[in-house]
Amino acid sequence: MPRVPDDYAPSAEEALEEARKLLAAGRPFHAHEVLEARWKTGPAEERELWQGLAQMCVGLTHIQRGNLSGAAALLTRGSARLGAYGSTRPYRLDLRALAVEADAVTTAIDEGNADAGSAIAAILARLTPAG
Rank of each mutant, 00 (worst) to 15 (best):
R92C: 10
R96L: 10
A71I: 07
A71L: 08
A25L: 13
W39A: 07
E33N: 14
T107W: 10
A31H: 01
E36Y: 04
E46H: 13
L93N: 04
A72R: 01
Q64D: 06
L49V: 09
L82F: 11
V34W: 03
L98W: 02
I109M: 05
P43Q: 12
R65H: 13
Y91T: 08
L35P: 01
P90W: 08
R38W: 02
R89N: 10
E46V: 07
A37H: 12
H32Q: 09
A71H: 02
S69Y: 09
Q64V: 09
N67I: 08
L68I: 13
I109V: 15
L60F: 02
K40G: 01
L68P: 09
P43M: 09
T76Q: 05
G86R: 13
I63V: 14
W39G: 01
R89H: 13
T76H: 07
L68S: 08
A97Y: 04
L68M: 11
R47N: 03
H62G: 08
A44L: 12
Q51M: 06
L82M: 08
D103W: 03
W50S: 04
K40A: 03
L60R: 01
T61G: 01
A31F: 03
R89Q: 15
W39C: 02
H30Q: 14
Q51N: 10
A25Y: 06
E45M: 03
P90A: 15
E33M: 11
L49M: 11
L93D: 00
V34F: 12
A54P: 04
P28G: 09
L93Q: 08
E36T: 09
A80E: 09
A25G: 12
L35V: 11
A97E: 11
F29W: 15
L82Y: 06
H62K: 14
R81L: 12
R77K: 08
H62W: 07
T76V: 13
T107Q: 15
R38L: 04
S69W: 07
G70W: 01
